[in-house]
Amino acid sequence: MRRREFLGAGVVAAALAACSSVETGTPTAEPATPAVLPGQARHVLEQVDAALARAVPANNPRLLGTRLTGPASREWNARLTVAANRKQKLTAPSPLQVRRLILPAVNPWPRWFMAAGTSSGEPTPVLRVFRSVTARNPYGLWSELSLLPGASLPDLASPLSGTPVLAPGDGKGLVAAPSAVVASYARALTAGSTATSQFAPDQFRQQVAGQTAADRRKLGVAGIASVSNQHRPSADGLVALRTQDGGALVVAALEQLYDVKVRAGSGVVSLDPDLAALARASSVGRSLRRTSVETVAFRVPPAGGGVVTVIAAAKADVSAVGS
């Protein structure tokens, strides 16, 4: 009898335990998808366009919010400040007609993605680069680069499941590490030479070197002022993605520091209207420091694959301090 009671109690206990068990599911294996899904990327593009559409007509940089970041944020802050000082109205860039999304594989933050396409009002195709610093920061437009004449974006590795991201210092299999490429290019820009063994000649470097040379001729020959020029990798960072041929697509930010020292007693140097609005001075009698952000996209070939090619670039003044 006692055994039967024990048995009954056991059955009841087992039944109760079965009824009160916690139900959960089993997540399946993670499929190979990019860190940013195409739908998410389009949402970001819309949000960025909406932020520009709010801020630009109002000449109000604060309305850009967090949807612009890095070099693009600095550039648009400066442009809207200049427009406000000059009492001008800018028009917001038209939405990008996306031809191609470049979506990296899942990787730690900061995360990036790119969209290439055309924008009405832009004579050449553009490459928009987006960055999210942490999971708690939204993706913002980091830069919009114009493709250089004759250039095209390389085919990227694993475009559907997410292109592998390379660490800035990872030069394995490349002619040089991405960070080394950027540092070398900054030195080449500073030197003003259009011929270096590591880089193919490009229109962006020609224009930068040409402008500096022209200013030096104009101011230096007359003995009014001296011009110095320095380009350096920016704290805004870089992104490097593996290309299908084993090379890399590298997009990096640089900074140009352009100094004009006016010789005492030689008069003043007039500034062009936009620069004057940024510096809040129409001329300088002692010195001027002009800071610009430059973003450059490189095609870095695999080791032994030849020279590095610049395929897209952008440049904008972000500050000017004169006296």
Binding site: E23, T24, G25, T26, P27, T28
Partner: peptide, 9 residues
Amino acid sequence: TTAAALALD
């Protein structure tokens, strides 16, 4: 939710 809770069959 946790991933397991959301994945209830």
